[in-house]
């Protein structure tokens, strides 16, 4: 059986909120290392990969591999009943028909309990190769969100060019063009404001802004976002969570010009 207790419901609420517009029905794969999720969007352009390590829960117990097939719209409805600060416990039997969610208020004696019916989801699982990326950029997640939103007002796609000069986000649209260039920057007082660019070779790739703006819904999960790029491979956008847990998005590049 599975029993996983999260100190704050907020974490799961934010994760589900960040991915629910991209993917609808997903398997939450539970085993003794934690709860993982991998799903592609309907058009197979983007892939979500979430890992909530067992250390992110206290306690965490999962004796066998259990796949919880959950509709994220249903999960969102139930999670709306949880206060951000509530303690959240997920429970399921070994061959479950439902997943049980319990929300406990730390301040009152209120205990809410919900069951969500599970679905049988036959999901393709993709093997993601270990990649040495040509460029890795760490930057404030709010800054990345703002750049994507600003450029989407002009164009549906953005080129991300990374060179030793810095990283340049550029777009061209009907009304004109725009670009934002960032250079490495260290803020001793506010490390969340740092921009770090780790480059082994120059990279230039073009991506759909609609997807990037969607990924940025995860911005509230982490002050920093990491962008990993290599020519002709999908972009990795990573939001690191506590205890080595993460929410990652992969986005296939645009082809040709």
């Amino acid at each position: 059986m599975l029993e996983a207790r999260l100190e704050q419901a907020n974490l799961l609420k934010k994760v589900v909120d960040a991915i629910k517009d991209l993917v609808q029905d997903c398997n939450f794969d539970c085993n003794d290392s934690g709860i993982a999720l991998q799903a592609m969007d309907n058009s197979h352009v983007a892939l979500v990969s979430m890992m909530l390590k067992s250390e992110s829960f206290s306690p965490f117990r999962c004796d066998r591999n259990i796949a919880l097939g959950i509709n994220l719209t249903s999960l969102t409805k139930v999670l709306r009943a949880a206060q951000n600060e509530d303690i959240l416990t997920l429970k399921a039997e070994d061959a479950p028909d439902v997943v049980n969610l319990v929300f406990e208020s730390a301040e009152s004696d209120r205990i809410s309990e919900y069951d969500i019916k599970l679905m049988d989801i036959d999901q393709e699982h993709l093997g993601i190769p270990e990649t040495e990326y040509a460029a890795t950029i760490s930057m404030p997640s709010a800054e990345f969100q703002r750049i994507c939103r600003d450029l989407m007002a002009l164009s549906e796609s953005v080129s991300i060019e990374c060179s030793k000069e810095g990283v340049k986000f550029a777009c061209q649209g009907d009304i004109g063009s725009g670009s934002v260039t960032l250079r490495s920057h260290t803020n001793v007082d506010k490390p969340e404001m740092n921009v770090e660019i780790d480059l082994t070779e120059p990279v230039s790739l073009t991506f759909s802004l609609k997807y990037l703006v969607g990924f940025c819904k995860a911005s509230s999960l982490s002050g920093q976002v990491k962008l990993c790029l290599s020519n002709e491979v999908p972009l990795l956008v990573e939001y690191a969570l506590a205890n080595n847990s993460y929410l990652r998005f992969y986005l296939a590049p645009k082809i040709g010009d």
Binding site: M40, E124, K254
Partner: peptide
């Protein structure tokens, strides 16, 4: 306009 690649062409099906 540039075409859009599929994520499946980059990652192996396992």
């Amino acid at each position: 306009p540039a075409g859009q690649g599929s994520i499946k062409s980059f990652f192996n099906q396992s």
